[in-house]
Amino acid sequence: MSSCFLTLAVQAQKKSATSKKDSVFVKPVVKKPARVNNDTTYMVPGGLRIGLDLSRFVVTAFQPYRKEIAVVADARITSNMYLAGELGYNNTSHSDSNYTYKGNGVYTTVGIDYNFLKKQEPRERHMLYGGIRYGFAHLSYEAPSYTIYNGYWGEKTTGSFPQTNISTHWVELILGMKVEVLTNLFLGWNIREKFLLTNVKDSDFPPIVIPGFGNASKKNSFDVQYTISYNLPLWKVKTTFAKPLISGKSKKEKEPEKKK
């Protein structure tokens, strides 16, 4: 009987030793969670944005002989790229003791804008952009009468220049911003530098103003534009918005205080 108890005690001791050994040296395998790509694709409003160039009315206030109107537009074709342009009309009428001038014409520009502003949320439509445009204008002008005074002889010569039709071209660089102040309603401004590609100063009778460009006596022109426009959400474009990955401890979690 005593031998049976001795055998059971030895087996129990071995089993206890084996269990203790396993608990010391065998470590559980913990699987690390797979890294998730937080970039999400959204369909956001695109559409056609149409508005007015308010700065043309300011020009008329300071230069009454110039009457201009311009319609601006852009279309969102990708998340940050816009096809942009404008269409305008100019009428210039000037008269003094030396000559009388009449001119009018239309112009158009077309180009692209790129939005550099990093979005805070996918549907944000504020813009800080740069762009480039090609400009074209066709105008007709004339001087129904002019007078040339000869100070030495005290004589004067009168005459007139017939109506002349010309076309001009230029390139302009743009930097500006647009802000959505109400749903689909935008206010914006931009500065632009224009470079004339057509030489009109060598003609016998150059125009005073080139529609869309400005002073015809200069090869380059600086301009400021203020716009109000409304977006027609006719289509949507695809955009990818990256959410920040959360790593380490949450900001709300407090680290344990260190013992002194």
Rank of each mutant, 00 (worst) to 15 (best):
Leu197Ile: 14
Tyr65Ile: 14
Pro33Asp: 04
Pro64Gln: 13
Thr164His: 07
Pro45Thr: 12
Arg56Tyr: 01
Asp74Tyr: 01
Ile246Gly: 02
Asn165His: 15
Asn190Ile: 00
Lys21Met: 12
Ser203Val: 14
Lys218Thr: 01
Ala143Val: 03
Pro144Arg: 12
Ser55Ile: 03
Lys259Asn: 15
Met177His: 01
Tyr107Asp: 11
Ser160Asp: 14
Lys249Asn: 01
Met81Ile: 13
Gly214Arg: 09
Gln225Arg: 15
Val71Gly: 00
Glu68Thr: 11
Ile148Val: 15
Gly188Phe: 05
Tyr129Trp: 15
Pro244Met: 11
Tyr114His: 10
Thr183Trp: 06
Asp74Gly: 02
Pro256Arg: 12
Ser55Arg: 04
Thr92Phe: 06
Gly131Tyr: 13
Thr40Arg: 14
Ser79His: 06
Gln225Ala: 10
Trp235Ser: 01
Phe161Lys: 00
Phe57Ser: 01
Tyr114Gly: 01
Thr100Ala: 11
Val224Thr: 06
Thr7Tyr: 10
Glu68Val: 08
Ser247Cys: 07
Pro256Asp: 05
Leu139Ala: 08
Leu8Val: 05
Asn184Asp: 10
Leu175Gly: 15
Tyr42Arg: 06
Glu68Lys: 12
Phe116Asn: 06
Ile191Thr: 11
Ser3Val: 10
Asn184Gly: 03
Leu52Asp: 11
Arg66Asp: 00
Lys20Ile: 09
Asn150Glu: 14
Cys4Ser: 14
Ser19Lys: 05
Ser16Lys: 11
Ala61Val: 12
Ser145Pro: 02
Glu257Gln: 00
Lys14Gly: 04
Val30Met: 10
Gly47Asn: 07
Leu87Lys: 07
Ser145Phe: 07
Thr7Gly: 09
Ser79Gln: 12
Leu6Glu: 01
Gly105Arg: 00
Thr92Val: 13
Arg192Thr: 02
Ser203Ile: 14
Thr164Trp: 06
Arg192Met: 07
Val72Ala: 03
Ser247Ile: 03
Thr92Ser: 09
Trp170Gln: 03
Gly176Leu: 08
Leu117Asp: 07
Ile77Asn: 02
Phe5Ala: 07
Gly135Cys: 05
Ser167Arg: 06
Phe213Met: 07
